[in-house]
Amino acid sequence: MELESDSGTLSLGQKFSLIFTSPSRVFTELERNHSWLAALLVISLVSLAATLPLLSKIKHMAS
């Protein structure tokens, strides 16, 4: 697989979008700068936000 090279640093938003379109570029960037905390926090919060409406629907059904 051909790797794209990029000397610039990708922002978190760019990494999140490029992981779907050009994942090699994100991973090449991670080789230089392996920051993960902000990404993990955003992923966990979005995951929670995607779950809460369904849980409240279950709670509403039970009550």
Binding site: F20, P23, V26, W36, I43
Partner: peptide, 9 residues
């Protein structure tokens, strides 16, 4: 680990 975090997307 950082690769695996982004792989979760």
């Amino acid at each position: 680990f950082s690769v695996s975090v982004y792989a979760y997307l």
